[in-house]
Amino acid sequence: MSMINNILLKALVCISIIIIMTGVMTSCKTERLKIQPESVKDITGTWKVVKAVRNGSAIFNADGLNVNYGVDYAGFRVNFNSDKTFKLSNNIPFVQNSNGTFSLDNQDYTTLITLKGEGEVPVTANFNYPFAVGKRQLIINFNSGCFRNTYQYTLEKTTE
């Protein structure tokens, strides 16, 4: 019976701690975040893939061995033009497979890019625009049409 008492004592300690913690956690004031306006995103230019990830595993990395097993990531280019058209060359699986028009969902806090290939249904993809390794990068997330198969391409501007 002393063991049962011991257990009940431990349970009592626990319940006391929970009550105290609840008090502590609910006593905090909500602090409102001050929102800083973001810079306007200008993605015009020619972009190449520097990294491709499929379902969480890298399948291409320009900094790595740059091995081509049959899909030419290194040769792929996408041009985003100031007239809101885009042009693909040396196609690889992408948000769209034919040239068309694009839009960003709004100039502040852009997280979505919509690409509409000619004669295609527009497809919206998640989009990040970090400043990394001294360069702007464009990171696009999309799926292949099967929600289970996700791709993330990291693009950098190129003059090649």
């Binding site: 690889i92 292949s144 049409g145 099967c146 198969n149 791709y151």
Partner: peptide, 13 residues
């Protein structure tokens, strides 16, 4: 094969 199942627009290894 990877992915185990895919579409015509996947990269299949």
């Amino acid at each position: 094969t990877v992915p185990i199942q895919g579409t015509a627009d996947d990269v299949i290894t």
